[in-house]
Design a protein around this nucleic acid. Structure first.
Lengths: 109, 109
DNA sequence: ATTCTATATCGCAATATTACAATTAATATA
DNA sequence: TATATTAATTGTAATATTGCGATATAGAAT
């Protein structure tokens, strides 16, 4: 049916998977890396640097913004994007807990 | 076109996004949480506990296995799944670096 | 006001994902 | 061997994602 049954999962599971999905594309990873590298925000540069058409970049930015991972403000003619610190911390913490909770070595397989 | 242009991205970007995509579904988050909770592996239990049909669960397990996040071995009639420690560490470290690299507060937007 | 520049939006085609019923495969047990 | 039991596979319908050309929008500069 192509439609995720979100009703049967917890809020936490849905929230985390939504955030991961927003990051789960090489172009969006690249965009985030670019933002992380220059801390200061960018935008039109991405089109040249990534090698994807402008509408495609715009769409990826929209998805990241929709998920709350980045935020953008008008900066004259161009638009300045940067990390949304709140979501970033939330995701970082939640992933931290998630990955830390594996205490390997009890191995069964 | 519905087809990601992997050629234009780095190995690292593709690898990371593939792993994130494998995790980016509430059912697969739930499966991982279940495995993390009982360290020892499970399988048929998931069908009852998650409320998804058996083929659906099987498909999600296959995706996690394909990405290398979990591994499974035959255990009599049932199959035992558990975390793949190598990939787990790799993903944990890479995400750690990624999220740590944001030193907020320089704020621009 | 007109024009330029930078982004966003729309619409579409190609492909991918999600979910499941039906079936098959594989192993255990009677 | 026949029969459960468990999980994988196949096929299919519904929906989502990716990418881009064409177009629209908004602000700056002339």
């Amino acid at each position: 049916m192509g439609l995720t049954k979100s009703e049967i999962f917890t809020e936490e599971q849905n929230r985390l998977s939504t955030l991961l999905k927003a990051m789960a594309h090489p172009a969006r990873i690249a965009i985030l890396q670019r933002i992380l590298a220059s801390n200061t925000c960018i935008c039109g540069d991405l089109v040249e640097e990534l090698g994807l058409a402008q509408p495609t970049i715009s769409q990826h930015l929209k998805e990241l913004k929709l998920a709350g991972i980045i935020q953008g403000t008008v900066e004259g003619v161009s638009i300045c994007y940067c990390i949304n610190p709140v979501t970033w911390k939330l995701l970082k913490d939640q992933l931290g807990i998630f990955f830390e909770s594996y205490k390997g070595e009890v191995s069964c397989c």
